[in-house]
């Protein structure tokens, strides 16, 4: 097996996913199979080949440094689950000793 239950639980936490025990089982098995499949690539000799970060041979498109109109403040805030004045309101984040 390529991947343990603990790893799946850890990755789920990083992705803020709440998984039921049977889902953890299922994903451990499925993710394991995906990783096994990726192993097929290891069989290839990649010596001297530059790592590929992007699949197509195109380079970055740039824009000139010019301002464009932003959304209105109401437009920006309309999806806010909670707001206070013109701020987004969120649960407190820092715990300090």
């Amino acid at each position: 097996m390529k991947i343990t239950k603990e790893t799946v639980e850890y990755v789920a936490h990083l992705g803020r996913l709440r998984l039921e025990p049977h889902e953890v089982e299922l994903y451990t098995e499925q993710l394991g199979r995906i990783l096994d499949h990726m192993d097929a690539l290891s069989a290839l000799n990649t010596e001297g080949i530059e790592p590929t970060s992007h699949a197509i041979p195109v380079s970055c498109v740039l824009r000139e440094d010019a301002g464009r109109e932003s959304l209105t403040m109401e437009g920006s805030l309309q999806n806010a689950p909670e707001r206070k004045g013109n701020f987004f309101k969120v649960p407190p984040i820092i715990e300090v000793d």
Partner: peptide
């Protein structure tokens, strides 16, 4: 710079909260 790194919103300091925002930078 005049505009943000990946969109055209202003980089000015001290605007009204959330007034220099767009779908990209949000």
């Amino acid at each position: 710079t005049e505009s943000k790194i990946f969109c055209g919103c202003s980089t000015k300091f001290g605007g009204e909260p959330n007034s220099h925002t767009c779908p990209t930078c949000m």
